[in-house]
Each structure stands twice: as structure tokens, then as C-alpha cells.
Simulated scan of single mutants.
Amino acid sequence: MEVQQQALAEENAMKVYERTENGVTELVGKRQGLAEINHAMMEGRREVRTMSSITRTDFAIEYKDGRSVRLVLVDEPAEVPAEETSFDEHVVSYTGGKVHTATPGTPDGHAFPLCRTGGSTTQGTRYRTVNAPLTCRTCLTYAERRAAASQKGA
């Protein structure tokens, strides 16, 4: 029994939460992740629009101030150099509209915006790559956050 408890404690010590807020992902300690989940369920519930437990280790919290947070319990990663993701391409709907950041890693000819563009699905909307400045407020916010994170990390 004591050996099982020790093994469980060692396994939990190597866990962290992957916290994604409006598209920006960071690793937080297990204690900090659980504190946010507990706050959203208990004393901070008036600040929360919706909260759902997708699995026992995956939580989605939507705050009334517009923040969308996803917490996923993962194994603590080894020190592996991160791939540099490029967010240089921009897309716009064929019918016109706001200019969005393109989702990186999509195959050629299948451009799609990084942000959620209104409807619950945009399967019927097609996008094309353009050389134009961003006009989508959500994409501009994401770009500012990426710039701030890169300056903080440098």
C-alpha cells in the first residue's frame, strides 16, 4: 500500500498544467492550475460564464470578461527546444472582410484563420492568403501577446 502511494506521489510530481488562454499556451505548476480551477468553481464563480470538465484532467473555463482558458494536465516535458512557429501569413475570406492571421502548418491551398471567426463552424467559408495588414481585433491581440512573450523570453 505504501509503495503504491509513493509511486502515485512521484507520478503526480512530474505533472504540470498546460494553460491556454485565448490561444496563448504556457506551462503552469500543478498547484497553480488546481488553484485556478478551484477559484472558478468556488469563490470566483461570479466571474465565470461557463466552466466544463471535459475529462478528469482537462478543464475549459470561459470568463465573463472575455477570457477563454483551457487547462490540461500533462507530463512535465523534458527540456526540448521548441519549434519556432511562423505567424507571418494573413488570410481573408473570398467574399471579403477582415484580414486574419493564417493558421500555421496548414497545407497549401487550405488557408484558414487562427482565430474563431464568428459562427460555430466556418466549414462553408473559404479563405485565401493575402499580403495585407491584420484588421481582425482578435488576431491583433494574439499578435501583441506573441510579441510580448517573445520579448519576455529573450
Rank of each mutant, 00 (worst) to 15 (best):
I61H: 00
T103Y: 08
G66K: 13
N131W: 02
A148C: 01
R128F: 05
R56I: 01
Y17S: 08
S68L: 06
R67L: 07
T121N: 14
V16S: 00
C136V: 11
G109V: 04
K64Q: 03
M41P: 00
G29C: 07
G118M: 10
E62Q: 07
G124Q: 13
S53C: 15
K152I: 04
A82C: 09
R128A: 11
C136H: 03
R128Y: 12
K64A: 10
R70G: 00
Q4F: 06
Y94E: 08
L34Q: 12
T138E: 15
R137S: 15
Y17C: 00
G23D: 06
A82Y: 02
G97M: 09
T138N: 06
S52N: 11
A111R: 13
G33V: 12
S68K: 13
L71F: 04
R31I: 15
I37E: 07
S86D: 15
L114K: 11
E144I: 02
G44H: 01
L140S: 10
T106E: 06
K152Q: 15
F59A: 01
E11G: 04
G118Y: 07
H110I: 10
T141I: 04
Q5R: 15
H110R: 13
A60F: 05
G97Y: 05
V130C: 11
V72Q: 07
L73E: 10
D65T: 02
E10I: 02
T117V: 12
E47K: 08
E89L: 14
R128K: 14
E11P: 02
S68E: 14
L34V: 03
N22F: 02
A154L: 11
E36N: 11
A143K: 07
P107N: 04
K15A: 01
R45F: 04
Q123M: 14
T138K: 10
F112W: 09
D88R: 00
R46M: 11
M1Y: 07
A143M: 14
D88V: 00
R49A: 14
R67P: 02
E18W: 05
S150N: 10
Y127A: 03
Q4Y: 06
L8Q: 15
S120F: 10
T85K: 06
V91G: 02
E43L: 14
E2P: 03
R145K: 15
R49N: 06
I54F: 08
E10Q: 11
R46S: 15
G33S: 12
M14H: 12
V80A: 07
A111I: 02
V69A: 08
M42W: 05
F59V: 13
A102L: 07
T55F: 10
M41S: 13
S86V: 02
P113G: 05
A35N: 12
P81W: 00
R126M: 09
G119E: 06
G118I: 08
Q123I: 11
L140H: 03
H110C: 11
E36V: 10
T50M: 08
T50D: 09
H39G: 04
M51Y: 01
R67K: 10
K15C: 11
T122F: 03
A7C: 04
R46Y: 09
T141W: 04
A82K: 13
R116I: 12
Q6T: 02
K15V: 01
